[in-house]
């Protein structure tokens, strides 16, 4: 089966459980938002997918083959990570050259073109770049590489608004040109909520949900009104969070929106992804 299948992956560091029996599948040619709070386990899972860490138990299959220490698999996957793994005394254009030798599908002309757009000086050494430009360099490599699985771990860290916009723009153009799986791990949900087709939500090392964004939006809503009426309405429903303001109450609910007798004075509204994320991870831990 094509895609990245993660099956029952558990990983601990010392006595901290970073991932707890994680099972999730990333399908081909989709853009995923991999969301979670800081320390939720996003980077750990990504590093296991990228063969940088080993799972304590469980397996990861990429296109039907086990991914750990499998050279033919890692030709298909590129992971842009927050950590700097490049030889930092090397000039940017030399790193481009080496990347071209390491990967069959690296387009060096594209890399130079993107560098120009970002005004990234390719004659500079990695370590002399600012934090923001180091990120830009890493994004440039990823965007110039045509592999079926592209993973970004906090891609826009340290980038200003213009550069973020440019990154999203180029990424979507590349995606439209040759569709591939793109996984964007981030806690900046508002920026990516329009771009992602599916969302995978992780909290305290557990997958809370994995769902198409549109379906998720359809089946979640917010109901507001007098606290007593809201409480009546919520009975028997899956409430993921509430906000209270005096006698007023707002409840966030997962499930079909239904109007019942006595709910005429209640106000119903959509919940956006950001709010949903906050409510789900506030509660934390419980799977739905």
């Amino acid at each position: 089966m094509a895609g990245i299948e993660i099956n029952g992956v558990t990983k601990s560091f010392e006595d901290i459980k970073a991932l707890d029996n994680v099972t999730v599948t990333f399908e081909p040619e989709k853009i995923y938002g991999f969301l979670g709070r800081n320390g939720a386990g996003k980077s750990t899972l990504i590093n296991i997918i990228a063969n940088r860490l080993f799972a304590d138990s469980g397996s990861i299959m990429i296109d039907g083959r086990p991914s750990a220490e499998n050279m033919s698999i890692h030709d298909k996957i590129f992971c842009m990570s927050e950590a700097d793994l490049y030889d930092d005394s090397m000039r940017i254009r030399d790193i481009f050259k080496w990347t071209g030798r390491f990967y069959d599908n690296f387009d060096i002309d594209k890399a130079l073109e993107i560098s120009k757009k970002f005004e990234l000086d390719t004659g500079k050494r990695f370590k002399t770049l600012s934090k923001g430009y180091q990120s830009i360099f890493k994004l440039t490599v990823a965007l110039s590489l045509n592999v079926p699985y592209l993973i970004f771990d906090e891609p826009v860290l340290g980038l200003d608004a213009n550069h973020r916009e440019m990154f999203y723009d180029i990424m979507l153009r590349e995606y439209a040109q040759s569709p591939r799986t793109i996984i964007i791990a981030t806690h900046l949900i508002e920026e990516v909520s329009g771009m992602i087709e599916d969302v995978v939500l992780i909290d305290s090392g557990k997958i809370l949900l994995c769902e198409e964004v549109e379906k998720l939006m359809e089946k979640s809503y917010c109901v507001a009104g007098l606290a007593s009426q809201v409480d009546d309405y919520c009975r028997g429903k899956e409430v993921i969070g509430t906000d209270a303001l005096g006698a007023l109450k707002q409840a966030y609910i997962l499930g079909e929106r239904e109007k019942i007798v006595g709910s005429e004075s209640l106000q119903f509204s959509q919940v956006n992804l950001q709010k949903l994320f906050i409510k789900l991870t506030e509660k934390g831990g419980e799977s739905i």
């Binding site: 999203y168 979507l172 439209a176 040109q177 329009g194 087709e197």
Partner: peptide, 13 residues
């Protein structure tokens, strides 16, 4: 694709 890139929206959407 133009609309997708301009508004940062998934092309499928």
């Amino acid at each position: 694709n133009e609309i997708s890139a301009l508004f940062n929206i998934n092309p499928h959407t």
